[in-house]
């Protein structure tokens, strides 16, 4: 049984000036022990996909439809609020982008970890607090006992993100979903948090979904990659294959545009134009207006995500067989 199964997911938001189609037919899955990276730019639909998986979007305005949307075999579509909250935190836990605003400022760190445990397990408050201390120790916070009594504003961003990870681990979830967990942090702290997430994943064997815009974070942390653009999956495959021989023109362009890959002052390879407007996505392939390989057919029909090589899929009619072989 797969930990996460997403099949043909669509998410739209009704706004006063029309419908925003944030996710348009996304499918992927996660096996136990696997780590999956979802990479995309703002508006690609990567965060909305995972928020939909935990049903964290307000409905309405959000509207979620899918053939399958399930966590460890439990469908999350059409179930009650109470039923979904027993899955959240226990089956799938989440870590968010900005640790400074992710914790309630008026309660202590210990309280906020303990309340997560109390929501899912029959333990006393005292036991939950003792577990909170252990969890903080596990995320390598020095003097965890004292930190349980701290309020969020008394900790640095890096420490808070560690506490958030401790909180996410508190009910031993099957899947950890990390949504840009290092974007708001300093470079050196970023590296430490990524290392911590990797270590814990290796230790517990839980599934990991890492959502990020940063190709470097993907290269450093995950086994398999889903590349999203304009609400659709452009390409999926093993991380090494994606980085050494990207199939989709978007993935290729994205990799080439990363600055600082070689020494010396230089012009960068840019992708002309800007990301599609989710209120009026272009017909056909969402990348065609910026794609150097686009032909007439790309403008008319959106190519399906097809297997192009073992374990590799791409949504592009211009991916030739010889490119895959290369």
């Amino acid at each position: 049984m797969r930990l996460v199964e997403i099949e043909d997911l669509h998410v739209s938001f009704s706004q006063h000036d029309g419908l925003v189609q944030a996710v348009r037919g996304v499918s992927f899955g996660l096996d136990s022990g696997e780590s999956l990276g979802i990479v995309g730019e703002s508006g690609s639909g990567k965060s909305v996909t995972c928020a939909a998986l935990l049903r964290l979007l307000r409905e309405p305005p959000a509207k979620i439809t899918a053939k399958t949307l399930s966590l460890s075999g439990h469908s999350v579509l059409g179930i009650s609020n109470r039923a979904i909250s027993t899955l959240r935190g226990r089956v799938a836990a989440m870590v968010f982008q900005d640790p400074m605003t992710s914790l309630d400022p008026v309660f202590t760190i210990g309280h906020q970890i303990a309340e997560t445990i109390l929501a899912h397990r029959k333990v006393t408050k005292r036991e939950a607090l003792a577990q909170a201390v252990e969890l903080l120790r596990r995320v390598e916070i020095k003097n965890p006992g004292a930190v349980t009594n701290y309020y969020p504003h008394q900790l640095s961003g890096g420490m808070l993100q560690r506490a958030m990870i401790a909180m996410a681990l508190s009910c031993e979830p099957d899947v950890l979903i990390a949504d840009e967990p290092t974007t708001a942090l300093d470079v050196t702290i970023q590296a430490q948090i990524l290392q911590l997430i990797k270590d814990i994943q290796a230790e517990t064997g839980m599934g990991l979904i890492m959502i990020t815009h940063d190709l470097g974070v993907i290269a450093e942390t995950v086994d398999r990659v889903v590349v999203m653009y304009g609400g659709k999956v452009m390409e999926t495959g093993p991380v090494e294959a994606i980085f050494s021989a990207p199939l989709h023109p978007y993935t290729r362009a994205l990799l080439n545009s990363v600055p600082g890959q070689t020494a010396g002052k230089q012009r960068l390879v840019e992708i002309a134009g800007s990301s599609p407007n989710p209120s009026h996505p272009p017909a056909g392939c969402p990348f065609h207006p910026r794609c150097p390989l686009a032909v007439a057919e790309c403008r008319q029909t959106a190519p399906p995500l097809e297997t192009k090589a073992a374990g590799r899929q791409a949504a592009c009619i211009r991916v030739a067989a010889e490119m895959v072989a290369a």
Partner: peptide, 29 residues
């Protein structure tokens, strides 16, 4: 609308607990 409310939901707290313990206390300030 604060991000921590989403985090509280993602932890699996009941909506009632989120409103009466967290949202009310913060709104009172």
């Amino acid at each position: 609308n604060k991000p921590f409310v989403t985090v509280l939901r993602a932890k699996g707290l009941s909506e009632r607990r989120i409103i009466f313990q967290h949202v009310l206390r913060n709104s009172a300030i």
